[in-house]
Design a protein around this nucleic acid. Structure first.
Lengths: 391, 391
DNA sequence: GGCGAATATTTAACTTCTTCAAGTATTGAT
DNA sequence: ATCAATACTTGAAGAAGTTAAATATTCGCC
């Protein structure tokens, strides 16, 4: 009991379906009036009023000040609901083979601080220790209220069970069946979520980026590997066997090279960074060529190296068209480290996509843009935000 | 008011979420006890009891007789709920360019009668007239209680809006924006549903066939066109622009033939019936070869024609692997008219699928089997059943 | 400035659905 | 016969949402 006799205030947002829906809608679709929410969610406006009150009381939402209200026309002006971004903060950490990248985000997924730590030992213990240190670094560099940081999202590539926080398999860390969620929660004291990195990035883009409002949405990442996160009917696609969005191993060229996966003519075996380097070395006869040098040569007009990028762009375009033809997303974002060479890919990806997209699928807008590496960590934080909002 | 003073009994099943869930679960997962349903649906057993009562009262469900009960072990034996299959019957009609194929199904989607009518005029009026006549033929040939037939499902290829019953575009009938649902309801007096034929077949297989219980599921049809219906997270995939499951136009061979869709190396341009015939004609030098003759030649050991089927099977396998890699369905059924030549395809489809499926995606079971043409009409009836069960 | 139309939000009574907790039913084992 | 185990039912209580009416606030118009 508290001095006044009240019950201790509940920590999280209310879990009722309507409250959850209202919270998520305000979070992703900016300030909205209660009537608009009611229409959007298929609820009565009374239900929205009731669902919103505890969210306001607990500090997650607030009404826009009168001056910020919109609205021409007659009638009582709306009092749109908006998110109180500094109600709670979230740590997001992307784990790569040799580095941890971390961010602190607010409730609107705005990055408030960043930090990095090198990773030398891929052992579970060592990684946990470094994650813990990175969390400290992040809090040190964070200007806001540290007591409001209660959640940590982790993202890494591999086969991950988000609901249990289990890393079933991580190729680059050589982990199998590591309960990363539980271990990290013990070590750091935070509420921890774990998700595959591409899916985390997709979730971030779906809630806070270009995917907002889309019933279905795809994000394609281009780099060493070529991956894809899918949202269909408003939900992230997981794959019954832990495999989904493996756009990198679609076969697009029956006469293409053998791929390390055992297939032939996979997108990744043509357009993955390693494949591009290998082809560029072959065409130039320089066995030590790096990807940066290949990019430089192509930009400099080296026809044969340009052709490598052209072919890669076409393969990626075919893969993206496959996504459009099969699941028909509302829009597709193409991104990733590989897109440092954005200018060399862009037009070929588009041309190939437009050729292979069937009928109206070609109407699907394509955003092709590079993404800073911190975005991956932001993805991890976004998953953590979702875990707060959704019960 | 009725003589006894009671209110007229309500026509349909109750619409409450729990009732709907119980009905659907009993329908698709056979006789189940209330406790099992409660666990399966995340409800309390009290809720199941209450939800089941009106379904029993209205004749949709019944309890299995004591003799049919299962269960070793101690404790009160369960009284599993089962569907009363003859509570209601459904007409299903598949519309092709030159024929209507119709079935009468019971509530468990068992076919009770079939009929066909040739179609000579693709005009809307003529089709409606023939649909009406076919419905009469079906009722004539149906031994059950005709007053219990109240719903009609229509299935045809093309771009269809299931919710409004609008045929946005039908290539083979040359229809655009025809309110087929409304028109057919007026003409026949039934409650009408309209759905794309592949999606209807997928829905049938998802509720009443091999897809039962699968969170995600894919059905691939091989024939003149090569199509695919997808169920992800328990829901049929529609595609934001009306395009989804267009497996026929995935690019699998960068050096393949140009496709009528404008793409290159599409699955359909290699493995569609027309493409197979064209290739077989080319290889044999017989410009009037038919598909049946090509099949006969291949079965007879004609190496070059066999190679055409081998290549086609490989292309289909690549397409199916693309589905497995991208959405990761629990299982995939491959079927369709084209599979009359099942024996020529089967092993090549599997080999190619296994090569291109990435990692654990290769664990996805593939059922390759021909499907009688009446199954398409049954798909239409299945959609009609769904429209009764889901509100 | 006052009035009415238009729109947004709140309130209160009510309905519906679900769960909880307790009780009943039916079986096998001892 | 009794007990443990499991399935199902019941009734009270609670949660969540709806409808209808009331309240709030603005604009346009006189």
């Amino acid at each position: 009991m508290f001095p006044g006799g009240e019950v201790e205030p509940v920590a999280g947002p209310p879990a009722a379906p309507a409250a959850t829906a209202v919270f998520a809608a305000v979070l992703t679709e900016g300030p909205v009036s209660r009537v608009a929410l009611a229409r959007r969610l298929g609820l009565s406006s009374a239900a929205v009023t009731k669902a919103a009150r505890p969210l306001i009381d607990r500090g997650y939402l607030h009404e826009l000040a009168a001056t910020e209200r919109t609205g021409p026309g007659a009638g009582r002006p709306a009092s749109p609901l908006a998110v109180r971004a500094d109600r709670e903060f979230f740590l997001g950490v992307k784990i790569t083979a040799d580095e941890l990248i971390g961010v602190v985000c607010d409730l609107r997924a705005q990055v408030r601080a960043t930090a990095r730590r090198p990773l030398t030992d891929p052992g579970v213990e060592a990684v946990l220790t470094e994650v813990n240190r990175l969390a400290d670094d992040l809090l040190d560099g964070f200007a806001g209220d540290r007591t409001r940081v209660r959640r940590l999202g982790l993202a890494l590539s591999g086969d991950i069970d988000r609901t249990t926080g289990l890393v079933r398999y991580s190729p680059f860390l050589h982990w199998r069946d590591v309960s990363l969620g539980r271990l990290a929660a013990q070590r750091t004291g935070f509420t921890v979520t774990v998700e595959n990195d591409v899916k985390a990035l997709t979730a971030a883009e779906h809630w806070f980026g270009e995917g907002v409002g889309a019933e279905s949405f795809a994000l394609v990442t281009v780099g060493t590997g070529i991956g894809c996160g899918l949202v269909v009917n408003g939900r992230l696609v997981s794959g019954s066997y832990g495999v989904a969005g493996e756009i990198g191993h679609l076969a697009v060229d029956a006469t293409g090279p053998d791929c390390h996966c055992g297939g032939r003519g996979c997108v990744e075996s043509i357009a993955g960074t390693d494949a591009i380097v290998a082809q560029a070395r072959d065409r130039t006869g320089r066995p030590d060529l790096t990807i940066d040098e290949a990019v430089a040569l192509a930009r400099g007009g080296h026809e044969q190296v340009r052709a490598v990028f052209t072919r890669a762009g076409s393969a990626i375009g075919c893969g993206i068209a496959a996504v459009a033809n099969l699941v028909g997303p509302t829009r597709i974002v193409v991104s990733g480290e590989g897109l440092a060479a954005y200018d060399l890919f862009d037009s070929h990806i588009r041309a190939s996509f437009e050729r292979q997209a069937f009928g109206a699928a070609a109407r699907c807008p394509l955003s092709i843009r590079p993404l800073p590496f911190e975005e991956w960590a932001r993805g991890a934080a976004a998953v953590s935000i979702q875990s707060l909002v959704l019960p």
